[in-house]
Computed example of a mutant assay.
Amino acid sequence: MLVERGWSVTYRHKLWRLLARRIPLRPFPLSGPSAVASITFDDVPDSAVSVGAQLLGRSGAAGTFYIAAGTCEFQDRHWRVCSRDQIRDLTEGGHEVGCHTAHHVNVQSLGVEALARECDENARTILEITGYPLLNFAYPFGDLGLWQARYLVQRFQSCRTIYERINVGTIDLAKVGAIGLFDRTMTRDRLEDLVGAAVAAKGWLVFYTHDVGPEPTFMGTSPRLMELTLSVLADHGVPCVTMEAALRHHGYGEDRTAPSTGARSAEI
């Protein structure tokens, strides 16, 4: 399988990406009584589990970890990907495992049938490891196309992007916004502004990151920043929960049929 790296740059790919951003695919009104936050991890380096999940757990929080199971224990230039045992530890600790395709594939490089096979393979592997289904998706590299997004949002509760915005009002579940939680870009003042805005709008603030360590990569978070984020959320009374739990908080399943999951997610 040819795995396309990074964002697709051809004119055709750019056009499909633009259409995917502009055309509503699955509108969903957020109806929760208060703001909620989710901290998510893409690719899931082993430090996201050994450090990130531990920090969340100590604060009574839970996260969503988007895993491409076919890359488990793979060593790339930035980090080593988590192991199957660590994936099992996540669900046993009350965290959610999400889908990131099986081999971290740019979805724009796949037709719908090939994309379905990627998701099927990942689902089988994660179910074998944890006993739980995959309910939420994050686009590898943050790249998406119209037809791929349409398929994915029919299959999953939500599809998380890297489009930097707070989710307020009526959102598109195919294009859930997220803010990068990176040491190189995040400050206390910005955190306070983001959380304050989410509280005022009774919205859903989603963060995303990768590795967690004292000297994180440019896509990662230090323990200091992770603890600061959890502290600011707590100061504003905003719970930090999985994507699944945040969706339920905002009314997912009340006016539509939601999958019966059995997944372990922190309640609000």
Rank of each mutant, 00 (worst) to 15 (best):
F141S: 02
V153W: 08
T130F: 08
E118S: 10
P29D: 00
V107S: 10
L146G: 04
E121C: 03
F74G: 11
E121V: 11
S47Q: 06
V49R: 08
N136V: 11
R88P: 07
L146K: 00
A102L: 00
H104A: 10
F65L: 11
L110M: 11
V81N: 14
S59N: 13
H104K: 04
T91R: 09
T71M: 15
A68F: 04
E128H: 13
V97Q: 10
L55M: 06
E113Q: 13
R77K: 14
Q148N: 12
S47Y: 09
N106A: 03
D76T: 14
R80V: 15
R80I: 14
C99W: 05
P45I: 02
P133Y: 12
A48N: 03
N106G: 01
N136I: 03
L90Y: 07
L144M: 13
N122S: 11
A61G: 10
G57S: 13
L134N: 06
P24G: 05
C72H: 15
Y132V: 10
G32M: 07
C119Y: 01
Y151C: 03
A69N: 02
L30P: 10
I39W: 07
V44W: 04
Q157G: 13
S50R: 14
A53C: 04
S109Q: 03
D42K: 00
A114E: 15
A68L: 06
P29R: 11
G63Y: 01
S59K: 07
T71F: 11
S31W: 06
S34P: 12
A138M: 07
L146H: 05
G131Q: 04
Y151W: 12
L115G: 06
S50P: 00
F74K: 03
D76V: 09
G32N: 02
E96D: 05
E113C: 08
R26H: 06
V112L: 07
Y151Q: 05
T64C: 04
G70V: 03
I129A: 09
E96F: 05
T125M: 15
Q148W: 00
V81E: 02
L56Y: 01
F28Q: 10
N136H: 10
R124V: 15
F41P: 06
G142Q: 03
G32E: 12
I23P: 08
G145H: 05
Q157E: 15
S158M: 12
E73N: 14
P27S: 10
G57F: 08
H103I: 04
F41V: 04
L146R: 01
G142R: 05
H78F: 15
P29L: 00
F65S: 05
L134K: 01
L144F: 14
A62L: 06
D43T: 00
I39H: 04
V112H: 01
E73L: 05
R150F: 12
A114I: 11
I87G: 03
A138I: 11
P24L: 10
A62D: 02
V51N: 05
N122C: 12
S50E: 15
Y132L: 13
T101Q: 07
Y151M: 06
G131T: 08
R84Y: 14
P140N: 09
G131H: 02
L90V: 07
I129Y: 09
S31P: 09
T71V: 08
I23V: 15
N106S: 03
